Amino acid sequence: MRQRWQKKPTSDSGLKSTASAPGKVILFGEHFVVYGSGAILCAINRRITVSAEAITEKKIRITSDVGSLDMEPGIPACDVGSSLRSLYHIADTALRSHGIPGIKMAVKSDIPAGVGLGSSSACCVAGAAAVSGLFPDSSREKILELAVDAERTAFQGTSGADCTVCTYGGIIRYGAKSHEKIEPGPGFGLAVASSGTTHSTESVVARVKKFRDANPAEFSRMCDAESEIIRSAKGQIEQGETAELGRMINQNQQYLEAIGVSNQTLQEMVRIGQGAAAGAKITGAGGGGCVFALTDGGTGAADAFREGGYECFAAGIDCDGLIVFN
């Protein structure tokens, strides 16, 4: 059985909770969202599942496909030298708030890390929900707040957009103070292709900031243009206007290339996607990772990516968002 929230009485060891959250594709707005332009994101049908259990030892223990962690609680997240520091922060926050000795967590993922598909955000959302499920009075809003706080231990400047779509699912238009769901028209499809290389979000974000500082007027103009694309794209998605939506996606890609987050491999992949579909662009930080093509549900773009030597999958829209299991 699954439900959105799972509430349990506070106690000692033996309490267990499991939660799952989807990955995402950024249709519009990566990097520019941090500077107020907003974004449109789509949750996809690849998931991370996190289980949490209260234990009697004064420990935070985490196991995952990318490593493990076994530490005393009470250490600042910035001093945790592990890629699992965000989950450590979630567990440590819960221990301080609820007074139990320790927590162990286990992570299972079918979202590849470091490729722009929201693995870190999905992990934070699922982790926050799993740990919150050990205690009463959890809510989706509190879980999202904890997840964003945790993600900031890894990416200080995160906008919160990724965690928001991983929590609510579907397609959303995200702004700094609110978000709204977008219901796509018929024929909305995505083909996601991997470059085979990961990226460092921090280094790419720093590169964008350097460009912005050196070219303030040009960057401001692109932010304004991106905001206008995002305002217009909502209607195009709802009406299923694939051709116009593809044109906007290609325009967004030009901005990403201008601010320096693309490279030769990504540009080759984008050109393959644009040649076989209405539009294609980078998703996520750039510098590596993935590209998506907007399709009408056909296989032409996926076939073209594979013929070019790139792994590819058809991404469905995940409408569930965060799920808590019991």
Rank of each mutant, 00 (worst) to 15 (best):
K281L: 00
M222F: 06
T153A: 01
T265E: 07
G170Y: 06
D70Q: 08
G246N: 03
L41E: 06
M248H: 12
T201G: 12
D296M: 04
D224Y: 02
S11K: 08
V324H: 02
G114Y: 09
A304N: 09
C78A: 15
S232K: 14
S51D: 06
N326S: 04
V115H: 02
V208M: 12
V270M: 13
G133Q: 05
P186G: 00
G289K: 08
E72R: 09
V208H: 14
R140W: 08
G81S: 12
G240H: 12
A122F: 02
A52E: 03
I62E: 04
E218A: 15
A77C: 02
G300I: 13
E53N: 12
Q267D: 15
V205M: 09
V205H: 10
S86F: 14
L27N: 10
P112Q: 05
L256P: 15
R96M: 09
A39P: 09
E145S: 13
G189P: 09
V33S: 03
E30L: 08
A77H: 03
I259K: 09
R2Y: 08
P22I: 03
A39L: 04
H199I: 12
K58Q: 07
N215V: 05
A54F: 00
A293V: 00
E53Q: 15
S220P: 07
G127P: 11
A129D: 01
L146D: 01
I172D: 06
